[in-house]
Amino acid sequence: MSSWVGQAIRRGRLTTRYPAEPATELELPMLARAPRPPAVVPDRLGAIAACPVAALSAAGGSGIRADEGRCIRCARCAAHGFDFSGSAECSRPDRAGLLVPPVPSGPGARAVPLRQLGRSVHVFLVDAGSCNACNHEVLALTNPYYDAQRLGIFFTNSPRHADVLLVVGVPTAEMTEPVRRAFEALPSPKAVVAVGVCPIGGGVFQSTPGLAGSLEELVPVDAFVPGCPPAPVSVLDAILGLLGRSRARTEG
């Protein structure tokens, strides 16, 4: 059958079992996972100094605290025994939750901001100044491997039809107003997801002059997805988390 239909049938089902089953090695390659420190870091100060984005800091005792919201997965800490063993379910509802080990914090953020939307959510993508990798990763959610539509996640062409704003990239001075306008245009109830370390804290660009600030300073953020860029499964999990359907939650 040399037709599109025949081709589609021949290729069969490609779609991932995620979130029913955990993410596979292919879906979550090494650098899509967060680094975890070894039990004992031999050269603690050396490791902290090696991190180019100051994601590592000293924790109580001889421990080390990693800030996943800064980590760009450059793997320089691998020389100090860190291994990349983070999970796909890396999104957190608050910025402090990205610290490993966590610090005691105040009242938590809204746990499930869009629970009332049930099984369907519409998503609008905003590029606040990204390198285009996160854009492609978010768009990859529509490909047959992830097929976000099967989970009730749909992309819209206007924020007026959307429930969720996915923001990628470092918010530049020029994009602050457009991002605010997009947020305003979203009808309530709504949620904002910061996709990647760039909107969370600037990532590797935290000191470049074009950065206007973190996304949190512009609009309230409901989910932080660390990664540079985060794997599509992580973005998927973050969106599902807004609806209370996160894999971590269903398992827990």
Binding site: W4, A8, P29, M30, L31, A32, C74, A140, P144, A231
Partner: peptide, 30 residues
């Protein structure tokens, strides 16, 4: 061309997975 889109998009994803498996990163950072 929706079938064509899905099929080609799938191939692009496979490419990313190949890159990820080979270099540890889907976008070849590092």
């Amino acid at each position: 061309q929706n079938v064509g889109l899905a099929q080609t998009h799938a191939l692009a994803e496979e490419m990313l997975r190949i890159e990820g498996r080979t270099f540890g990163h889907r976008w070849l950072f590092g």
